[in-house]
Amino acid sequence: MKKYHHELHDNKLIDSKLHQYLDAIESNSIVSVYTELRLLLYVGILLFTGGVGYFAYQNIGDAGHILLQLVLFIAIILGLVFLQKHAQPFTRAKSIVEHSYFDYILLLVSLLCISLFTYVLVYFNWYEQALKSTSFISAILFFAFAYRYDNKAVLSIAITVLVAALGISISPVNWIQGEWNSTLELYNVGICIGFVLLTIGKVSDKYNFKSHFKFTYQNYGYLILYISLITSIIESDYDIYFALSGILCTSIFGYFNWYKKDFLFFMFSCITFYICFSYALFKLIDLFNNDLWMLYFYYVPGSIIVFILFLVNKKSHFKHD
């Protein structure tokens, strides 16, 4: 068969203009460096903002420190001017900026703000006193940027920072070694945060306030809630109660996700349900001290296969059109 654009054009399925356009792409007359440039810019931002923060600990003399803080401050101001110039006025709906690197400048400015903030704290030795509040202030700053300039990446960072500030690391990024870790039952906090995030997602969708942020809130909400539930089963003394409430919780959410045709969250719910249910089941078998535990060898592969076959049979359910 011919190249696809020739084939489509010969059968009059696309017009000549589109055919010419596709031919230019296929014959390399026009090449897009969209992804490459963005990646380059992003790596640059990561290295630069990562490196700048460390200067606070380097011996570059008093003048050097002041100068560097001043440079950072000026860079932030310039960035903010750029953002204000190109940004749309604030709306409750999704605002789209037609600029090819606006989002990256936003990311750079918000990360630089955090760098400068940390730098100032370290330089004036305020760090020890401010330890607990710094992450919260950073989170608030990220939230403000995310809502003002409508950016999901910054919102994701904001949520990660906030959750880390509350003592949970939901990601490989270790934001802060908060001292709450050892004293609080973390999974309880996690379960609460999960519910709060899910509620925020629901509310923003219902009242149409940045409703496109719903996915981000839900994604983190479900992940934190379910991971905390599973952790609670492993760590808590009330494991069986947590397992039962996990079964209840995942059943309800799973039902709604099935109903709303959210495949990703339905899968999250199913996996967590499976873990809670299996735990409760084998705890029960253990209670009666039966030899039924032999079932385990067939239960795991058997149940997984049955579940997958069920999903494949119902695959048309999750199609959106």
């Binding site: 931002i45 990561l46 923060g53 990311l107 990360l111 950073s138 994701s156 960072i157 990024v173 994604n219």
Partner: peptide
């Protein structure tokens, strides 16, 4: 997609050092 890159960025960005020891 926007959602996918948001997740990648939130998991990689934000390397502000908290103390000298993790330099």
């Amino acid at each position: 997609t926007e959602d996918f890159s948001a997740i990648i960025i939130s998991q990689t960005a934000g390397g502000v050092p908290q103390s000298e020891k993790d330099l």
